[in-house]
């Protein structure tokens, strides 16, 4: 464990907990894409299957439970909680995310490190996580506005990805044989997706005007 990875995990946990807390507190999910949240729930469900078979550490298991619990709770609130569901922007959140699931599944069947059930699903979860933010970014462009929470959510997610890249650089130089091309490439693609959002987020913050 290194400081970059710990900071990355904390930032990631904070991003999902802030989102869950906001939805729970103000009973609204305006501006939030349920499709992105569903994709994240699938990412965690397919990546953390080994929670029952391989024990890495208390921290690892605890964090997996936090991510699973928070992502499924957010989907539950947005889909089944009456007050929250009413504020869900169905007309604008129309990204056909099942195509993303299908293409990531096919890609995982083609490119993976080991052809085993857990390994293919783990690789699938990496590919899916890289594109999971797309429905949210599309919704953000459509609604043209960004209430401070959605911006913070995406900002923290981008921060987590950036810190993980620093973590991989650190581990590459400190651990022999630490080479995970699939993880690195998907992580880089995901971080690049956030790059343009960061550019406009920074501009709006610098000029102190609403993000458009």
């Amino acid at each position: 464990m290194n400081i970059f990875r710990l900071a990355g995990d904390m930032t990631h946990m904070f991003s999902v907990l802030v989102l869950l807390l906001k939805i729970h507190t103000i009973k609204s999910c305006a501006g939030v894409s349920v499709k992105t949240q569903e994709l994240y729930a699938i990412v965690f469900a397919t990546r953390y299957l080994d929670i029952f078979t391989s024990f890495v550490s208390i921290y690892n298991t605890f964090m997996k439970l936090v991510f699973l619990g928070s992502s499924f709770s957010i989907v539950w609130y947005m889909r089944y909680h009456k007050a929250v569901h009413r504020t869900y922007d169905r007309e604008q959140d129309t990204f056909r995310h099942w195509f993303l699931v299908l293409s990531c599944l096919l890609l995982a069947l083609l490119i993976h490190e080991k052809f085993t059930f857990l390994e293919v699903l783990w690789t699938f979860s990496l590919y899916l996580e890289a594109v999971a933010i797309l429905p949210q970014l599309v919704l953000l462009q459509r609604t043209r506005n960004i209430d401070n929470l959605t911006g913070q959510y995406i900002f923290l997610l981008g921060g987590y990805r950036g810190l993980y890249i620093l973590n991989w650089i650190y581990r590459y130089f400190t651990e022999p044989h630490f080479v995970h091309w699939i993880t690195w490439i998907t992580g880089l693609v995901q971080t690049l997706l956030y790059a343009d959002f960061f550019y406009y987020y920074f501009l709006s913050w610098k000029n102190n005007k609403k993000l458009n």
């Binding site: 964090m63 783990w122 993980y164 973590n167 993880t183």
Partner: peptide, 10 residues
């Protein structure tokens, strides 16, 4: 080596 194979990152 097994430690390397099992995914220790979240």
């Amino acid at each position: 080596l097994d430690a390397l194979l099992t995914h220790d990152e979240l």
